[in-house]
Amino acid sequence: MSKRGFWDVMNTLDRRIIFLILLICVTLPLLLNVGGEIPPTAPVERAYDAVATLEAGDVLLVSIDFDATSAPELMPMLRSVLRQAFAKDVRVIMLGHIAIGLPLGHMALEEVAAEYGKNYGTDYVDLGYRPGYIAVMIGMGREIRDFFDTDYQGLRVDDLAVMDGVHSYEDIDLLFGFEHGAVIDYWVRYAQARFDQRMAFGTTAVMAPDAYPYLQSNQIEGLVGGLKGAAEYETLIGHPGLGTRGMPAQQWAHLLVIGFILLGNIGYFVSRRNRG
């Protein structure tokens, strides 16, 4: 094949061939289970430290602000945070602002609670969803029961021991939100700025660049970004999961894309020179 022919072929390559190569690149590392622990970065360590400051009986508010479209990134970090909290006998209160994602959060909550022998209503609760997240966030600064007088299955929160003495942000020691959209902005602007609520976040990789300014300004205490962040958190709690397992595949795929970008650019310039 001539030099010109090669680059012409590359420039007109059927994109399905690229998809196939990417599929192989992601599948092989998963099957071979190569790689190891991912060293944690400062933003993730800060998030871990924020949860680590909690003591037995303290209250961790977990906000599920994602749905199935972001589950592969956010579920591993949600499980890790719940493991860290339950291991310290911290009370966990879950709620969410994306109704369709709450069952995912509930699934992880039940799964991890069972690992640590925790009981619903005593050690943790799922308050569910209420519409109008700004009103909910501001109202929770006064009285949580104004919006969540019952849990997700209709049980009165006053009958649940886990809610004893928990009325507003003053009674919540840390908020950990799992975000795939703009809800993080509202948490920061309404709960942190108005009520000085301590908070850390796990976000999708897409959202992470938008969240870094909050970390730099110390409005949030930590940030876990994307699957890599989840892998780092798994390293910190010593419990590898999907994040750690997926990192080699992530690395191979990134190298492949970098290669394609270089190849595409070289091909473009070579073709232009040959034409002109």
Partner: peptide, 25 residues
């Protein structure tokens, strides 16, 4: 800034693929 956002976006999309392939396998 655009480059960082694109890099993160790529990571997110690959993560979704990893999640689905992990489920299948």
């Amino acid at each position: 800034s655009f480059g960082a956002s694109f890099g993160y976006t790529l990571m997110a999309r690959i993560s979704l693929l990893i999640g689905r392939l992990y489920f299948l396998l």
